[in-house]
């Protein structure tokens, strides 16, 4: 088995007096596809923010490829190969689609010059199916298009780990299928995928391992089929009473 690429040890984060993440520990292996699920407000985005340095961990340690990256700034995360997409897309609105992706290639992907960055950007647009929009303004894309742009931008940064924050939210069924196929192709290139997802369909069809976050704590870590039957997970999602009822009805059968 390969060495873990990312290791979190007792990572906590508080805002004022509120504990948003409480002693989270887990690791990702190279090439894995891991899903992070949990009810709204569980701290999923906060966890990604802690890893990428947007809101660094208040305590605990994060190691990436053996290096301590706990207090890193977002741009350092990007350069190290920890790329992410946002739940709310963040394009450079007045730049073209191509320039948006080139920004990722130039700064995150450590390209020496604009020319190489543009070449990489074109390649990534081709890969994500956005090539025909290369010269359009980023703000002119549809939501699905902008989500793809986020992906293309992140890919241009030559990521080792790609963290996807609800890339499928707001998309319709066929758009989701397209996005899933794309994520699989990215994973095939050896990129470790860490995906925050609400749709169980996506989680079950994509993830090899699932982490469950509830009230800022990691309550489960295992393979998808075990996770969906874990009573703590059911409780977290459906509430205590409902979980008990399910258990009882299961017992009756």
């Amino acid at each position: 088995m390969s060495e873990p690429i990312l290791v979190l040890e007792d990572v906590s984060r508080n805002f004022g007096g509120i504990l948003a993440l409480s002693e989270i520990s887990f690791s990702l292996k190279e090439g894995e596809i891991v899903a992070l699920i949990g009810p709204n407000g569980a701290g999923k985005t906060t966890l990604v923010n802690a890893i990428t340095g947007v809101h660094p961990a208040s305590s605990g340690r994060i190691r990436f490829l053996g290096v301590d990256v706990t207090g890193q700034r977002p741009f350092q995360a990007a350069r190290r190969g920890l790329a992410r997409t946002f739940q709310i897309v963040q394009p450079f609105p007045q730049m073209t689609v191509l320039e948006n992706v080139a920004a990722g290639a130039l700064f995150g992907g450590a390209h020496a010059n604009m020319h190489d960055a543009m070449a990489t950007a074109r390649e990534k647009l081709e890969f994500t199916g956005l090539a025909q929009f290369a010269d359009r303004s980023a703000s002119a894309l549809t939501l699905a298009g902008r989500k793809r742009l986020e992906l293309a931008k992140s890919l241009a940064m030559k990521p080792k780990i790609l963290m996807l924050d609800e890339v499928n939210a707001g998309l319709n069924a066929s758009e989701i299928d397209g996005a899933l196929a794309l994520i699989r192709r990215i994973a095939d290139q050896g990129v470790t995928i860490f995906i925050i997802e609400h749709l169980m369909k996506v989680v079950l069809s994509l993830a090899q391992r699932v982490l469950v976050l509830h009230h800022g704590s990691l309550i489960a870590d295992g393979n998808p089929t075990d996770i969906v039957n874990d009573p703590r997970v059911i409780e977290a999602y459906l509430g205590e009473k409902f979980a008990r009822r399910i258990k009882e009805s299961a017992g009756n059968v």
């Binding site: 700034r73 977002p74 741009f75 920004a103 700064f107 604009m114 931008k153």
Partner: peptide, 26 residues
């Protein structure tokens, strides 16, 4: 204007957080 510095500065102008995220040392 022609260098990566100019490109990075324009990224900051349009969306400073996003610039940070793509690796610009803002």
């Amino acid at each position: 204007d022609r260098n990566r510095l100019g490109f990075g500065l324009r990224c900051i102008k349009q969306n400073e957080n996003a610039a940070d995220m793509v690796g610009v040392d803002t």
